[in-house]
């Protein structure tokens, strides 16, 4: 991890309230793993005071992209930035997703996103496919309505299968994305279907609000499928010193910023 002043090179509003922004990385920066995040100070004023965490959405050479939703003054200030402007960045932080190495890659990856939880999952999908073109990636995206379904097209472009669920049925299945996930796992178990994917090579990766993650964790347990969850908790610093983002796990208190944000779903005490 490093602290650096990053130049914004691209900024695009992709939907009402949702933005993607790319910034330059110093050449000295260590390789970024999907699931790791950056802490960004959006201005040099006392309001907003603290940095805000943003997961790496796309990882390229000397370039990182973030995807964010405007939720308050800090993200609103960030959304007003233009290419050429700079931001103060600390990162990459946290552990990132474990996608194994060599031949031990997730052959059947099920990615579950709630709203802008898609942000780190796109970088993850790219990494899984880069490891082995034969790996299958299915992305389950859930949101309140179609306005909140983000990045579905981007995932399709890189040959991921996409399943969508909205609360109001304005896009995809009407209902919860976690039910769609459970349905897919149940079918897979019953049929050992057309793609001939063995259940034991399936891994679930999820990012979104805590109730969604909890539900995904329960489903994973039911189908005895490994599951990694990217947890969210209000952070003060992102570097592990303020101890604000503490969660309960089977091995005691853990910090989301330093020990996470990615945890084995069985480790988390829901």
């Amino acid at each position: 991890m490093e602290q650096f002043i990053a130049k914004i090179v691209r900024h695009k509003k992709i939907a009402p309230q949702y933005h993607v922004m790319a910034f330059k990385l110093p050449a000295s920066l260590k390789k970024i793993r999907p699931g790791q995040f950056f802490e960004i100070k959006v201005n040099d004023l006392a309001v907003p005071l603290l940095r805000r965490p943003f997961g790496a959405h796309k990882i390229e050479k000397n370039l990182a992209t973030i995807l964010f939703k405007i939720v308050g003054p800090a993200t609103a200030a960030l959304a007003r930035k233009n290419p050429g402007d700079t931001v103060d960045v600390i990162g990459p932080l946290g552990n990132g997703f474990d996608i194994g190495h060599g031949t031990r890659t997730p052959q059947n990856a099920l990615l579950v996103a709630g709203g802008h939880g898609v942000a780190p999952l796109f970088a993850l999908a790219e990494a899984i496919l880069r490891m082995n073109r034969k790996n299958k990636v299915t992305v389950f995206i859930g949101g309140r309505n179609k306005e909140h379904i983000i990045s579905a097209g981007e995932f399709k472009k890189i040959k991921c299968r996409v399943a969508i669920a909205t609360d109001d049925g304005s896009c995809g299945t009407k209902g919860l994305v976690t039910d769609v996930l459970a349905g897919a796992l149940s079918r897979q178990l019953r049929t050992a279907d057309s793609d001939a994917i063995e259940t034991r090579s399936t891994t679930i990766y999820a990012c979104g609000p805590r109730p969604m993650l909890r539900s995904v964790a329960m489903t994973a347990k039911k189908y005895d499928t490994p599951c990694q969850v990217s947890m969210e908790e209000t952070m003060g610093c992102g570097t592990g010193i303020c101890m604000g983002c503490s969660i309960d796990t089977a091995s005691g208190k853990k910090l989301v910023c330093k020990d996470g944000p990615v945890f084995d779903s069985r480790e988390v005490i829901w």
């Binding site: 309001v47 907003p48 005071l49 908790e233 209000t234 604000g244 503490s246």
Partner: peptide, 9 residues
């Protein structure tokens, strides 16, 4: 949790 809340300045 939550243990942190940002306030004005």
């Amino acid at each position: 949790a939550p243990r942190i809340a940002e306030t004005p300045a």
